[in-house]
């Protein structure tokens, strides 16, 4: 999978590139509008992560150009602007998703993967790890042949972890993923702990032991 990251802030660009390289994407970075334009002209990407505010131009113009050329690269906008209007404008220009800074890389990763699945996988939409299997479209999960009965939040949590396998995902990232903006007002993320506890118990009951590990107080990791 080829990924282009357009972000003028170098350190942030580095982080994103590093994260996605570990996810075995073929990553390229671009810090300016001009450079990004050249790359878009010359290559085609599976997904473009696009910052709107670039030193030499607006990211939206890049997006417009891309769509005019009938290129269907998936585009995720990353922006510091979080108003509904900005989001609507971004999507109107042909972006597939919009995520506001500061974001969690695991969240960005989950969204990129969701986009790519939408783009390339038709019909079934399954994530697998060992004998754990989840069906995103019908929102069902099973362990081997046994179906798991999960609440909405537990399913979202499991799907999020499955999108970021073998990685430590912080509790904050999980909270934000599941509860969105509401998590802003939460005094503690203890509820993540209890959700994880329940999820672990349900997985164990169906024979998928020890898939989720707790990494000190930092977060959780789903791995075989």
């Amino acid at each position: 999978m080829k990924l282009l990251v357009v972000e003028d802030e170098h350190t942030l660009l580095q982080s994103i590139l590093e994260y996605f390289t570990q996810e075995e994407f073929l990553c390229e970075g671009s810090a300016t509008h001009a450079d990004a334009l050249n790359k878009i002209e010359d290559f085609s990407y599976d997904c473009i992560i696009l910052d709107i505010n670039l030193p030499d131009g607006n990211g939206l113009r890049l997006l417009q150009h891309l769509r005019k050329q009938k290129k269907d690269d998936a585009v995720i906008i990353i922006s510091a602007r979080d108003s509904l209007q900005d989001k609507i404008t971004g999507l109107d220009y042909g972006a597939d998703d919009y995520i506001t800074k500061p974001f969690h890389l695991s969240e960005l990763n989950a969204r990129v993967k969701a986009l790519l699945r939408r783009k390339y996988v038709h019909g079934t939409d399954t994530l697998e790890l060992g004998n754990l299997q989840i069906e995103l479209f019908s929102r069902t999960a099973s362990c081997g042949q046994q179906k798991l009965s999960l609440t909405k939040s537990e399913f979202d949590l499991l799907a999020y972890l499955m999108n970021n396998p073998n990685r430590v995902v912080s509790r904050q990232a999980i909270a934000e993923h599941i509860y969105g903006d509401q998590s802003d007002n939460m005094p503690s993320f203890d509820f993540v702990y209890s959700q994880i506890k329940n999820l672990k118990r349900k997985l164990k009951e169906k024979g998928c032991d020890d898939l989720i590990q707790t990494v000190y107080g930092l977060g959780y990791k789903l791995s075989l």
Binding site: S15, Y19, A80, P102, H104, S106, V168, S170, L218
Partner: peptide, 23 residues
């Protein structure tokens, strides 16, 4: 607005950091 970007940088570096082996 200006603080969003440095915050995003810190957050992303922290995420990379917690995934470093040998923590």
């Amino acid at each position: 607005h200006e603080m969003q970007t440095p915050l995003a940088i810190i957050r992303s570096k922290l995420e990379l950091l917690i995934n470093q082996p040998g923590l």
